[in-house]
Design a protein around this nucleic acid. Structure first.
Length: 260
DNA sequence: ATGGTAGGCGTCCTA
C-alpha cells in the first residue's frame, strides 16, 4: 500500500498539477494540506473519476485537509481533539482496510507558528501538545497507524540546506524541535529518516530562487506506529512535482507499506 | 543580499 502526503497550497490553483501527480505516482492513499477550500467547493469529481474516494475537512481561504483513497474510507473524523474552540481545519482521520489489515490514516497541517514568539507560536505549541495526546491514544490501540502531513518542523540540522538561515524561525526553534522529539519518542518511526541518511527536502520557498539552488527543508513527514513501521519497505520524495508547471512550494512524500 | 513569490473571493493576510 503506497501512502503519500502533499501540501498542495490551494486546490483550485493546483488541480491540474494534483491530477498529474495522482496519475504519475498513483498512491493508494493520499493526504492533502492547504486545500484552501470549503468542503462544498472541493473539486472531488475529477479525483473520483481517477478512482479515489474523497473526504475533506475544509475551511474558507486558509488551511483545510483531505484524504483520498482508492479503497473505502471508514470512520472518518474531523478536527484534532483537545480544544472545542479551535475552528482551524488542520486534522482529519480515516481507516483504510486492506486485504490483510486496516491502516488508520491521519492527515495534518500543523500550524506554521511565525512570528515567534507571539500568539501564533503559542497556538503552534498548544496544537503540538494536543497532537502528542492524540498520538498517545492512537498508539495505545496497537494498530497500524500513519500520522502524516505538513508538520512545519525541521527536525534536525541535516533537514535544512542552510540551518543557520532558520535560526529563530518557528519551524526550527528549540521548543518546536523538542515537541517533535517528544512526539516521535512516544514510539513513532519517521519513515524517511528510518530509511535514508540523505536530507530529503520537501519544501522550497517560491522566493529567492530556493528551488533552483535546492535551498530546501524537510518538513513534510510520515510517522508510523510500530505495527505500521514493521511493514515499511520504501520511502521517497516526488521532487519532479516541485519542478513542474505552476507547482506547489511542497513536494509529495510517500511510503510503501506491506499491507495487502 | 532582511528581499523575494504565490494563493485567496482579498483593498491585506498567511505562508
Amino acid at each position: 500500500m503506497k501512502i503519500a502526503t502533499f501540501n498542495i497550497n490551494g486546490v483550485k490553483a493546483r488541480l491540474p498539477a494534483l491530477l498529474d501527480w495522482l496519475r504519475d505516482s498513483a498512491p493508494e492513499v493520499a493526504v492533502l494540506q492547504e486545500i484552501k477550500s470549503e468542503d462544498a467547493a472541493f473539486p472531488a469529481g475529477p479525483i473520483e473519476d481517477m478512482g479515489y474516494n474523497v473526504a475533506t475537512h475544509g475551511q474558507k481561504g486558509f488551511n483545510g485537509v483531505a484524504i483520498l483513497s482508492k479503497r473505502p474510507l471508514e470512520d472518518v473524523t474531523r478536527g484534532l481533539p483537545g480544544d472545542p474552540d479551535d475552528a482551524q481545519a488542520r486534522w482529519i482521520e480515516a481507516t483504510v482496510s486492506g486485504g490483510d489489515g486496516a491502516l488508520r490514516v491521519c492527515g495534518l497541517y500543523l500550524p506554521n507558528g511565525n512570528p515567534a514568539p507571539g500568539p501564533k507560536y503559542d497556538y503552534k505549541l498548544a496544537w503540538m501538545a494536543r497532537l502528542e495526546a492524540r498520538a498517545r491514544a492512537l498508539l495505545e490501540t496497537e494498530a497500524p497507524v500513519a500520522i502524516m502531513g505538513d508538520f512545519n518542523v525541521i527536525p534536525q540540522p541535516l533537514d535544512a540546506r542552510d540551518p543557520a538561515a532558520w535560526t529563530g524561525d518557528a519551524l526550527y526553534l528549540p521548543q518546536s524541535r523538542a515537541a517533535w522529539r517528544r512526539l516521535v519518542h512516544l514510539g513513532l518511526t519517521d519513515a524517511w529518516r528510518a530509511l535514508h541518511d540523505a536530507p530529503g527536502y520537501s519544501f522550497w520557498d517560491y522566493q529567492a530562487g530556493a528551488w533552483a539552488k535546492d535551498k530546501g527543508i524537510r518538513i513534510d513527514h510520515i510517522l508510523l506506529s510500530p505495527q505500521a513501521a514493521d511493514r515499511l519497505t520504501a520511502c521517497g520524495v516526488d521532487r519532479d512535482a516541485r519542478g513542474g508547471d505552476k507547482p506547489s512550494d511542497h513536494a509529495p512524500v510517500w511510503a510503501e507499506l506491506e499491507i495487502g
